[in-house]
Design a protein around this nucleic acid. Sequence first.
DNA 1: ACCCAGGGTCATA
DNA 2: TATGACCATGGG
Length: 219
Amino acid sequence: MASNPYTQLHRRLLQHYGPQQWWPADGPFEVMVGAVLTQNTAWGNVEKAIANLQAAGALAPEAILSLPEEALAALIRPSGYFNIKARRLRNLCQWYQQHGALAGLQQWETTSLRQALLGVNGVGPETADDILLYAFARPVFVIDSYTRRILSRLGVIQGDEGYESLRQQLEAAFEGDSQAVSIFNELHALIVMHAKEHCRKRPYCEGCPLRSDCVYGDQ
DNA sequence: ACCCAGGGTCATA
DNA sequence: TATGACCATGGG
């Protein structure tokens, strides 16, 4: 297996934090719901919203679609942007049902599935890739602001690359690796873990695997 | 009181 | 194509 800055980052983070076993959800559909709800939102708030949906028996596409949008919005209120996200959840559920739910969608090729997801209003690149990787186990790397930040700080990237460009760069680094899905799964999760559990609380991560490379905050 | 969080869309130039 | 406004709750 090739050694490059990305495989090294994966190794360093994995050794320090251990396997993350993402996505924190019960099944593919719940992954999809979480992917929409977590848009620009702290995960803790998403958990509350999902708990509300669960308690209301609304953690299924039919249930969500049968709910008045206003009622749906009320349930997901803790996750913020609740009016917009209620509409986005509905869009996603409609799309999901129209294409034969999980069984139907699983048969699509990754590229087609990605394009179709991006066609849903409210599903952008990152949300689509969350769903592809964590709900459909496709070898797609999720680029988020943390990834951009860390790679930029490590000097691996410029920082102003477009989403597609970055994604393909990351995926190329693991080209031919039969464990790509598993590695992409872990690396994205580890990057988020690293950002959440360590660097946000301290300017310099004491004992963190990125050491002095890891500087959060401005500049 | 301020800042940010596991983004995305839409209107404008 | 490239900015800017907007969406909104909750924790540090």
